[in-house]
């Protein structure tokens, strides 16, 4: 009973998502909304603005460096939490 309910729920959610997927911007189309002035700026100006060739590296350490700081904090939190749990 419970399993049937779950399967039905999953199928309903899956069908909804598939329907949504039909409507989404086409996969790999250069005219999609994501390829807007932001990504163009990154692609065109990264070398002059940051002096590096890998745009992804420029984004993670320069344009969005604060995210990376958050990420280092996540690692630190994981360690502190793990040690607190394992040593208690």
């Amino acid at each position: 009973m419970r399993i049937a309910l779950e399967v039905v729920t999953l199928i309903v959610i899956g069908a909804l998502l598939l329907m949504v997927a039909q409507e989404m911007p086409a996969f790999g189309d250069p005219a999609n909304p994501v390829h807007n002035e932001v990504s163009e700026f990154y692609l065109e100006n990264t070398q002059e603005e940051t002096g590096v060739q890998n745009v992804v590296a420029a984004i993670i350490t320069d344009y969005r460096g604060f995210d990376t700081l958050g990420e280092l904090t996540v690692l630190l939190t994981a360690i502190a939490g793990l040690l607190a749990v394992l040593r208690s």
Binding site: D67, G70, T73, V74, G81, A84, V85, S88
Partner: peptide, 20 residues
Amino acid sequence: FNIYVFLEISSIAAAALVAV
């Protein structure tokens, strides 16, 4: 996305504070 990163920090830290 920055909010998401902080959300993850807060969920790990909060779970750790429960289990400590």
